[in-house]
Design a protein around this nucleic acid. Structure first.
Lengths: 358, 358
DNA sequence: CGGTGGTTCTACAACGTTGCACACTAGCGG
DNA sequence: CCGCTAGTGTGCAACGTTGTAGAACCACCG
């Protein structure tokens, strides 16, 4: 059977509590005693039983990260960053894939794992503002993304409108007049698609360009395949364009594929910019310009906020909304390799919402 | 305070054990009683305390997946597949990133989390055959990859040599005579690099082509950047080539970038094939031919083997080595879009090794 | 020499759940 | 009317750890 503190205590000739004290770095222990206990631990190959410790301390040292899918590079890189940040703080991450389904996302919030992890970092993709009630949960929660605002939780989001506007202006500044957008969600008023499309229109307006519905390419899912399809459809329909703003990098890389298939030179005939600044962007042919929404900062901040909540006792602090800085990263696809332009500073905002926890 | 079974029992007017029985689906409960208990659970918002259950049952329902980095698409897609497979069986996955460092990989095996998860699926990248002793652990373990053979654990691997040979022959069958390989590890005798390089040489031999050391491009890390660098170096050195076999897709996509930068047409002047058949391969320009090592099957099998071990009581079954089927997927970069060629059937092999667990 | 304060170690009682053993009822065959 | 089985519910004792409280010892001060 497994070795317990009891066995270690017996071998070292001390009480079980002393073993516990050694394991937990309690300072008032004679050096000789400590050594004896540590020797016994090594000899027996003792490992702390986490379940017992968790039960006793009412804390598991685990946090959940709920994302749509790890095979989407943006979320894989986000998960990487979250795991690293959590690890640095001595915490472990458990990943839940929701496949962007309402059912799975609701389940994540329902707290099925309430007592398995100490908190949740949640990037919803199916739930929206109408579901805001579901976000009133009795455990520490940090929301990512732009589908839900005003929920009683900390929130790390992006400068979507400003960044999308900047991307559009970047294309306009190259002299492009027929700027298409890919990935729009017709009729939606919330979420990244709506916000970025809003920024696109603001950019057009500021550049003095007319808005032409023909230039708006719908794409429900933001995958490479849908980006390629949407781009192809537009080109086949004979829509005239000299630039494309794809609402994320996957769409952009898909669009790039389609442009190439139609023998259209990028950036010669059509300039292209994406959003997210995924690792891949650097290595596409031509290298893809993109908007860097500050992913590392997002991950780092989310973990920090969550751990603060978890550690907090007493009166709940007001909920915060944090917006990391975003940047335009110019590469070959907009003919300006190496440029990096700050969009506009993000920041932290305090949102006064009442909160009570059990 | 949190709601416990005690509270539910009181409210429903039954014993705490009956609540436990309801929660765990014990069959001999009167319908009326069951309803009363379930109503109480809903009204109080009761959730099982996993720590307590885990302590009592000596099982956590968690498994660890240890991979080098999630930001590498191959591992992100593997993690996605493993999580999905585990989830389907009612298990949860905890991801550990080793950064391919010896220290972290050793730690994973040392069992620091011994009592936090019930088993480990481990894809080592730093540890090798000399470290085989470290793999004699006292918990269920499934090894992925080709760095360690003969360890006392189940092992899911690939048909590396055969698949690499097939990839090389695929290039030769297009009439290419100067086939470079990218990603080799000089002097290494184990791991994917060595095996795939061996397959490359076998392919050359079978095609009647000479082996030319000039055609071998070293690249320690298999990232896009290193692929691009290695390819550039070869081209700058004036090495004559008409085809490239990159030992993984990241290298291939990096190489594609470099080829493009040198204004070399793919597949016109140089044909290119990668390994892994990552999602991206479909969408590069031109679309990348690759070797599909059967990733979903690998993930699925690994979870299956691990859960079998975890569930096993009594005499340990012999260790198994499973090799899923791999395929050559021809796309534009070798000028044969749409081709899929089976390499050679994989299979399951039983490896007799003594095993005892605590 | 008693009091004070730091140091070192220990006993006991939880934490919330489930395995085990058992009590009780009803129905049924012998 | 006894014993047996199936159905329904309960009480107790763990699982392995840590928080709390305090005992025992030492040095040192006044």
């Amino acid at each position: 059977m497994a070795v317990t503190m009891h066995d270690v205590a017996q071998r070292a000739g001390v009480s079980i509590k002393t073993v516990s004290n050694v394991v937990n770095g309690y300072p008032y222990i004679r050096a000789a005693t400590k050594e004896r206990v540590e020797a016994a631990i090594d000899e027996l190959g003792y490992r702390v039983n986490m379940s017992a410790r968790n039960l006793r301390t009412r804390r598991t040292g685990l946090i959940t990260l709920a994302v749509p899918e790890l095979s989407l590079p943006y979320f894989a890189e986000l998960a990487d960053a979250v795991i690293s940040a959590a690890d640095a703080a001595g915490w472990t991450v458990l990943i839940e894939q929701t496949s962007a389904s309402r059912e799975r996302e609701t389940e994540v919030l329902s707290g099925r794992r309430r007592h398995l992890t100490d908190g949740l970092i949640f990037s919803p993709l199916a739930l929206g503002p109408d579901d805001i009630g579901l976000f009133s949960v009795d455990f520490p929660l940090v929301i990512l993304g732009e589908r839900v605002f005003g929920a009683p939780a900390d929130h790390v989001t992006m400068n979507n409108v400003a960044a999308a506007k900047a991307a559009t202006l970047h294309l306009a500044s190259l002299g492009r007049r027929r700027i298409a957008v890919i990935g729009a969600h017709e009729g939606e008023r919330v979420g990244s698609a709506a916000l970025r499309t809003e920024g696109y229109r603001a950019g057009l307006a500021e550049a003095g360009l007319p808005f032409d519905p023909e230039l708006v390419g719908e794409a429900g899912l933001w995958h490479r395949s849908t980006g390629a399809e949407t781009m192809s459809r537009m080109l086949d329909d004979g829509v005239e364009i000299d630039a494309v703003f794809a609402l994320n990098d996957a769409l952009a890389l898909g669009a790039l594929h389609a442009l190439h298939a139609h023998r259209i030179d990028v950036p010669g005939q059509v300039a292209l910019i994406g959003f997210d600044d995924v690792d891949d962007a650097k290595y596409s042919v031509p290298a893809l310009s993109s908007v860097d929404p500050g992913r590392d900062q997002i991950a780092h901040t989310a973990v920090e906020l969550l751990l603060e909540r978890i550690g907090a006792s007493g009166d709940p602090a007001p909920f915060r909304r944090v917006v990391p800085d975003s940047k335009i990263v110019g590469r070959e696809s907009t003919g300006e390799p190496g440029d990096v332009v700050d969009v506009q500073p993000g920041g932290t905002e305090q949102v006064a919402v009442d909160m009570t926890w059990a």
